[in-house]
Computed example of a mutant assay.
Amino acid sequence: MNRIIITLLLALAPLFSQAQNFEKYENMKDVDAMVMTSKMFKMLAKVDLSESDPEAQEYMKLIENLDRIQIYKSSNPDVMQKMATDVQAYLQKGSLEELMRVKDDGQNIKFYSVPGKNDNYVKELFMYLQGSNSNKPMTVILSITGDIDLSQLSKLTADLKVPGAEKLKDANKKS
């Protein structure tokens, strides 16, 4: 009986760990990481902003509908290879659809999404960047989950200073 339970748990483990694929990078020595959770977004949404500033109100509307933002960046070749392998596995498992690809200034950037309630919204936006910055190799993984309005998202990612995220402005024009 115990063998059956252990076998079942091992078989189901990949289903539960899919969202966990990238969290292992948080504590790695050569990885810059930032993870924001829904609790942080709820706190930010309570910030008292001027109601006369429509841009600030749109920004607040965007962040209160987010669940999680994860950003992992590394220039270590071994870590970059592990990231590439994990991204490939993640893309094969999930229901992500390619949104766009950009090759620009020594960077290959790919955006993927999980469709949302309509064409302007996604449930997940995933970005994978391979390239260099100041002649230094770099890999960046960005995952944003929630009820995401693509028309507002480029403002948020620009504020986070995520390499490659400025290309999101073009993604919204294509959708």
Rank of each mutant, 00 (worst) to 15 (best):
L125D: 02
N118K: 09
K61Y: 05
S151C: 07
N135Q: 13
A165W: 07
Q57A: 15
S95Y: 10
L91D: 01
K93V: 09
K155C: 10
K24W: 13
T85W: 06
D119A: 15
M83G: 04
D149R: 01
A165T: 02
K39W: 07
Y72F: 15
Y59S: 11
A45E: 06
A19F: 02
D30P: 04
D170C: 10
Y121K: 12
S134A: 15
Y59Q: 07
K42V: 07
N118D: 13
V122P: 01
N65S: 12
L8S: 07
K24T: 05
K103F: 15
V162M: 08
E64M: 14
E23L: 13
V87F: 05
L62V: 02
S113I: 00
L8Y: 04
Y121L: 14
K155A: 13
M127H: 01
A33V: 05
A165D: 04
A56I: 02
Q18M: 12
P54H: 12
S17L: 15
M60A: 09
L9I: 02
N27E: 11
S75K: 05
D159G: 12
K155E: 06
I144G: 00
T145Q: 13
I69S: 03
T85G: 10
K136C: 06
P77S: 09
P14F: 15
N108T: 00
E166Y: 09
G146H: 10
A33K: 05
M36R: 05
A89F: 14
A84Y: 08
S17N: 13
E98R: 10
A45W: 12
T85A: 14
L160Y: 04
G106K: 09
V114I: 06
V47A: 08
I4T: 03
A33C: 12
Q130C: 14
D30V: 08
P54Q: 11
F126R: 00
I148R: 00
K73H: 07
K82D: 14
S143I: 11
S50H: 04
T139P: 00
L150N: 03
A84I: 04
E124T: 07
M138H: 09
I5N: 02
Q20T: 03
L156D: 04
L9D: 03
L44M: 05
Y72T: 02
L44G: 06
I4W: 07
K174Y: 13
A45I: 06
V102F: 08
K110W: 00
I4A: 14
F111C: 00
N76S: 14
M34T: 03
D78Q: 15
Y128E: 02
M100L: 13
L125G: 04
Y112L: 00
S38V: 10
K174A: 15
D30Y: 12
R101G: 12
N172P: 03
I6V: 08
L99P: 01
L160I: 04
S95L: 13
N118W: 10
D32A: 15
L96F: 06
Q88S: 12
V122F: 13
M34E: 03
N133D: 04
L168F: 09
N133W: 06
Y112A: 00
G106Y: 06
L168T: 01
M60C: 08
N172W: 12
E51K: 09
Y59K: 08
Y128A: 11
A84S: 09
